[in-house]
């Protein structure tokens, strides 16, 4: 049985870990139920990871090189792991499992940001999306480690080690594509332009996040903005590319009211589970 404290020192799933691997089942069985508002926050964080894992999973068998099939698959797997912890913890507030939340919520009930919902596009656009998301989550989890909620803190600690590798992967590809050929530089710039309008949503002080940040349970999104932008600007310039000047797209409230992608993503992800409600898999 894992308690929150047991997995604070675990290594990435992508590296060799010592001791028992942590499982969402262990977390579900052992932690105290999340308070309602904390659960809504965990759900929001978990939805981002779940949708991005769903998007990235599509690359497996379609990547430019075998090593990238493995790398993108690995990152998707890490993100799915983070989603499972966060959804399991969120569900504890309402007596729901991670699968209840993943498969039986409607488009309107998801709280994912539009950045992770964006299509894979070409490899450069996927890397651009990874770059923004991994730089954001790295900053977020570094701060969430100090959350007053011990379960969120433990999940952040576990996820941070993996996100550290995700941002390295994205940054290395940004440099390679930015400094590779004329075509790769053009595509990488286009990729950044395509996802940049959805960066601001990550820093919007939505509820319940803003309220929870007053008690140091959540991290206030707007407080992440400066560091993330500074680091992104530096790496983009190092790659010989331009920071897009696109303003944030309107509707940065994670509601789904301003996204056309979410419905398709969920339709595909949920189809089988919904054909057999109540079945065990």
């Amino acid at each position: 049985m894992n308690s929150a404290a047991d997995f604070t020192s675990q290594d990435s799933a992508t590296r060799i870990s010592v001791g028992d691997a942590i499982t969402p089942e262990g977390l579900g069985a052992s932690s105290t139920p999340a308070p309602e508002e904390t659960a809504r926050y965990a759900l929001l964080l978990g939805d981002d990871c779940l949708i991005l894992a769903q998007r990235l999973g599509h690359w497996i068998s379609r990547a430019p090189e075998l090593e990238e099939d493995i790398a993108l698959g690995n990152i998707a797997l890490d993100l799915l792991g983070h989603a499972r912890f966060l959804l399991t913890y969120a569900g504890s507030a309402w007596g729901k499992s991670e699968d209840d939340l993943a498969y039986f919520r409607s488009e309107e009930e998801f709280r994912s940001c539009r950045l992770v919902e964006q299509e894979n596009g070409d490899f450069a656009q996927t890397i651009a999306r990874q770059l923004l998301f991994s730089f954001y989550t790295h900053e977020l989890y570094q701060r969430l480690i100090h959350s007053a909620d011990s379960t969120l803190s433990a999940i952040a600690d576990k996820a941070l080690k993996e996100v550290d590798y995700h941002q390295d992967h994205a940054a290395q590809w940004l440099l390679r594509l930015g400094g590779g050929t004329e075509e790769s530089s053009r595509r990488m710039q286009n990729g950044l332009e395509a996802v940049w309008p959805y960066l601001e949503e990550l820093f919007a002080d939505v509820e319940p996040t803003a309220e929870l940040s007053k008690n140091d349970i959540a991290v206030l999104p707007s407080s992440l903005r400066e560091n993330v932008l500074t680091r992104l600007t530096a790496i983009i310039e190092q790659a010989g590319l331009r920071v897009p000047d696109a303003k944030g797209a309107l509707g940065a409230d994670r509601s789904g009211r301003f996204s056309e992608h979410r419905g398709f993503i969920l339709a595909e992800m949920q189809v089988l589970a919904r054909q057999h409600p109540g079945a065990t898999w």
């Binding site: 969402p24 799915l80 989603a83 499972r84 959804l87 595909e268 589970a273 079945a279």
Partner: peptide, 10 residues
């Protein structure tokens, strides 16, 4: 993309 549970997907 269609695995019927998150554990199976993983």
């Amino acid at each position: 993309s269609r695995a019927p549970s998150l554990k199976r997907k993983s």
